[in-house]
Structure formats: C-alpha cells, structure tokens
Design a binder for these strands. Structure first.
Length: 593
DNA sequence: CTAGGGTTAG
C-alpha cells in the first residue's frame, strides 16, 4: 500500500539503505561470533549480567522476614526493597515499608530516601515532603542523596522553582554541598525542558565548581538530549570532547547515539556505531536491540525488525514486553492486524508481561483499521484480567468511535472514564473536540472547550489545529486565519499539521498564493513540509493549471524522499493520458511510485 | 541498604 504515510516514507530510504542494512546484520552477528556466550574466556568481556530479581520472589522473602521471631535489622529490609525501585514497583515498596512501620521497625536514612524516591516517581511530591518531615521527627538529617532525590522529584513534576530552591539552599547553606549527582539531576531537568544550551552551560559551570568534574553521566545525559532533538553533529562533537578528556563512552552513551541515527534512518551510521562499540568490548544489550527493532518498525521495515529479534534470541537476549510492543506496533502501522494479533498472543503464551501499553497498541491498531469491535473486546478483556484501563486506553477507544462518527459512544466512554477515576487529559478533549467538529456540532465543541479550560487544562497546538481545520473545511478561512495569527500570543508554535491545514484551507478557497506564502514561511521556520503538505499544494496547483510549479514541487518532494499519494497520483495519471505532462518529467514521477 | 544518563502506546 503506497498510500500510507509510513510506507511512503519508508520505500525510498529502504532502497538506498538495503546495502548498508546487510552490513548492519553482519555487525550484529559479528558481535555474536566474537562473543560466544558459551566461552568462559569471552564471558568476562560481556556487560555484567543484570541481577535477576522479581517482585514476587522479593515479596515472599519480605513476608518471611517480617514473620520471624527476631526481626532482621532495617538494613536487611533496605537491601531487598531497594532493588525493587529499579524495577519500578514503587507502590509495592511503599506498602512494604508501611507494614514494617506497623510492626515498630525503626527506619533509617536509607529507608526514608528509598520511600521519598518512590513517591517522586509516582508524582506525589506532597507525600515525599511529609516523609522528609519524618526525618526531622526521628532526629535524622537528610543528606545529599535525599536532597538530590527531592530535586529530581520536583523536576519530574515540572516544579522547577522548588527544585532550584533546594539547590540554592545547598549552595548557600554549606552543610550539604551539591555533588556531581546534583548537577546531573539539574542537567537532566534542563534537557527535559528541551534546553540543550542551558544544559551545556551547566556542564561548563560544573567544571568551575570545585571537585565536581563532569562525568560519564553528565556527558551522556546531554548527548542523549541532543540526539532526541536530531542534533546528531553536536552529539558527536560532545562525544569527542568527553573522549579527549579521558571519559570513555559506555553502553548507554552508544544506545543514545544509535537511537539518534536510527531515528533519521541512517542505518549505515548505526552499523558503524555497532562495530565501533563492539571493538571497544561493549556489546549490544536489550536496550540496544529494542531501539533497533523499534526504529525499523517505525520505518515500516517489520520484516527486518523481525530478523533483529531472531538475532537477539540467538545471542541469548530474551525479547521483553518493550520488544514485542514495538513489533506489534510495526504490524499495526502497516495494517497487518493478523500479524499484530499473533505477536500479542505470543506474548501471552510466553508468559511475558502484557501491559496496558500492549493492549493500547493493539486496540489502536484495530481502531485505525476500523475494527472497533475487536478493540472493545480487548478493552473488556483487560478489565477482566485486572488491568485498569488508564486515560490513554480510553483516549484510544474514544478516538476509534469518533473516527467512525459514533460520537455518542465516545461521549459515553468519556463519562465512564471519570466514573472509574481516570482523569481526562488534553488528548481526551482533543479527541472529542475533533469528533464534534467533524460531525458539525460546533456549539457542543465550544462548550467542551470551556469545560476543559475550567479544569485548568491549557489548549495545546493540537486543539487549535482542530478548530482551524473545522473553519477551513467550513469555508471560513478568515476565522481560521485569525486563530493562526493569535497562536504566538498564546505561546504556541504552529507545527506541520497547522501549516498543512492552513495551506489546504487557502487552496480550497482559491488563495493559492497565500498557500505558497505559508509553504515558504514554514521552511524558513525550520518546519519541513510533510508528504501531506506537498500533495495538498500539488493537487491545488494542478487543478489551477499551474503545471510547471506543480512539477517543481513534485521534484522537491521526491528529492526529500516523499511520494505522491493516491489522489495526487490519480490526477497525474489523468494528465498523462491527456498528454499534459512534460515527458521529461516522466522518470521523476515514476520514481515517486 | 539511598540519588543522576539509554527502549514501547493515545
């Protein structure tokens, strides 16, 4: 199906990267042959195997310890509960400590730090702070670790003011000086906000801060953030800098870089990085493979992704929920729902954790391909299995109903989710608003918008896109344009969809020059047109008989790896049959298939 | 026995 956005983008890249992809497999296999799992000599070269602990076993041991006549010391409890935090079993850890408290076990500074960290990750800073109060009640002094944990919690909750307040106290107070960890936590906070330059500045400041030399984590944090913003060149420059300073990259640094290049479809570069890391005796781990599988799937290359899964199994790396979820999503994207279902069933039969996200991916796939009944069945099934449908799941299902025009069913779900204690977010409102607008119920939509604002949920660019789209399609381009012009005063930036909606609006109102102006503007602002943008404007140009300009843009879009969609292609084929297309452009158009 | 960096969904 060359009409789908994904395969359209995937095809040209696939052709140009098939050769490098072969090298890529051999790089993965090579790392296996140089590292046979059965050989004892090379065993030492592997990354240290992760400790296998699970919730069930730990809780069994915990219960046993709790029922001994002579209670073990609090240290023993910390030793077994601490690792559960890394497995993200926050609520269970908190519950366990509560049980200990009931038996009169006195907690120490380590226990309290663990509990605070759990509340931080559950986004319950209020509870974190009350645990801090407990510190003082017990005559314990919080240390650097405790404060770093709190800073991290505030940053994760987007409460920057409180985070920096703690940092300032540490700097001024002097009794608890910030350390590398403090700085790295703040660096991460800046990265989350997309402030790479701020993060780099902090890195430089750190060097001036006594014995706080930036370490591997400091550099890796920023490298990852640069990669996420597709600033690959800057990321590699920072990598060179850290190596020059004698800090060697590790598996996490490489995973960030590999993810960065894969996201851009640079398979050849990914291959080079894989070879480079293996030559440094760093071997791809579960994260690495999951990144590869997911990136291939997102490019529509599920067959290749499946081969990578085979390779990881050969290498004794067991695919996990993340691996299967990515693969499932890859099939869903291509509309291969039977294959997606097969992966889901495989997960169930292998006893892998099927989580809410697994359900969501499959449900979303069914919804996108108009199989709402299958999605509803899954929804009922997950509830039966004790998995609580969260806001994301409800949004998916509501979206499924809205796209079928069944707004009332979506609204029923909207009420139901609140009755079951799930809070609608901006996405929930966006889904319903779009549904209402598309079914010409503007009054209802505006009421809902008011309700949303009453709940202190700020409309984002998606919400504005929905209304702009409504106005454009209703032939009220002026109203859409007013919204568009007001965006910056609301602190919102137009995205590709915003521009495409407006361009389409202008085109349909015969204002092609306005559309062309916007096309230039988006390029200037660094917002690259998508294949939808191109097709919209190309179609309009053809209808307007501006053939040479249309061909110019077709040329540009093919150059950028996009292809014409079905309706544009239909137009072109039609023109071809009427001999209205310059034969010199034929090879170009063919390429577009 | 506590803190900081890497993977998946709407």
């Amino acid at each position: 199906m060359w009409t789908s956005a994904c395969s359209c983008r995937g095809i040209p890249r696939l052709q140009s990267s098939l050769v490098s992809l072969n090298n890529y497999y051999s790089a993965l296999l090579h790392s296996q042959s140089s590292n046979p799992s059965k050989s004892r000599n090379t065993q030492l070269m592997r990354n240290p195997p992760p400790k296998v602990i699970n919730l069930e076993d730990t809780l069994k041991v915990f219960d046993e310890m709790l029922h001994r006549c002579h209670l073990p010391s609090v240290v023993r409890f910390n030793q077994i509960l601490g690792p559960l935090v890394k497995l993200k079993h926050y609520s269970e850890v908190i519950y366990s400590y509560k049980q200990m408290g009931l038996l009169g076990i006195v907690l120490n500074i380590y226990s309290l730090a663990i509990i605070i960290n759990c509340y931080c990750h559950l986004n319950k800073m209020g509870f974190s702070l009350s645990v801090l109060g407990k510190f003082f009640k017990c005559g314990l002094e919080p240390d650097v670790t405790t404060l770093n944990t709190l800073i991290n919690g505030f940053l994760l909750a987007d409460r920057v003011t409180e985070a920096t307040a703690i940092f300032s106290k540490m700097v001024e107070g002097g009794y608890c000086k910030p350390d590398v960890c403090t700085f790295n936590t703040l660096t991460k906070g800046l990265c989350i906000k997309g402030n790479n330059s701020g993060a780099l500045q902090l890195l430089r400041k750190m060097e001036q801060f006594g014995d706080c030399k930036p370490d591997l984590v400091a550099y890796s944090t920023i490298i990852d953030s640069l990669c996420k913003d597709t600033l690959i060149v800057d990321a590699f420059n920072l990598l060179s800098e850290m190596i020059t300073k004698g800090i060697a990259p590790d598996i996490i640094t490489y995973n960030s870089l590999i993810h960065g290049v894969c996201r851009l479809g640079q398979w050849k570069e990914a291959t080079r990085l894989l070879n480079e890391m293996v030559s440094r005796n760093i071997f791809p781990n579960l994260y690495t493979f999951n990144i590869l599988v997911d990136s291939l799937c997102k490019e529509g290359m599920v067959v290749e992704a499946k081969s990578v899964v085979e390779i990881m199994i050969q290498r004794d790396i067991e695919p996990d929920t993340v691996t299967y979820n990515s693969l499932m999503d890859g099939y869903c994207l291509r509309g291969e729902m039977d294959e997606a279902r097969e992966v889901f069933d495989l997960m169930v039969s292998k006893g892998s954790m099927v989580d809410a996200q697994s359900y969501n991916i499959l449900m979303n796939g069914y919804c996108k391909h108009k199989k709402i009944d299958e999605a509803v069945t899954l929804f009922q099934e997950m509830s039966r299995k004790g998995l609580i449908p969260d806001t994301v799941i409800y949004n998916t299902l509501m979206n499924g109903f809205c796209k079928l025009g069944r707004i009332q069913d979506a609204q029923k779900l909207f009420f139901r989710m609140q009755a079951y204690g799930q809070f609608p977010d901006v996405v929930s409102y966006a889904v319903l608003l779009d549904g209402l607008c598309k079914s010409q119920q503007l009054d209802m939509a505006i009421n809902l918008l008011k309700e949303m604002e009453g709940k202190k949920l700020d409309p984002d660019i998606v919400i504005y896109n929905i209304f702009m789209d409504y106005f454009c399609k209703a032939g009220k381009v002026e109203a859409a344009r007013d919204l568009f012009c007001g965006l910056s005063s609301k602190g919102l930036h137009p995205d590709v969809k915003t521009y495409t909606i407006m361009i389409s609006g202008f085109c349909n109102s015969g204002l092609i020059s306005g559309a062309e102006k916007l096309l230039r503007e988006m390029e200037e602002k660094g917002c690259l047109p998508s294949y939808v943008t191109y097709n919209t404007i190309v179609r309009a140009l053809i209808h307007n008989n501006e053939m040479s300009r249309a061909m110019e843009l077709i040329h540009q879009m093919v150059e950028r790896g996009f292809c014409a969609d079905a309706s544009t292609m239909e137009l072109i084929v039609d023109l071809l049959s009427q001999d209205k297309v310059d034969p010199a452009l034929l090879p170009l158009i063919k390429q577009s298939f």
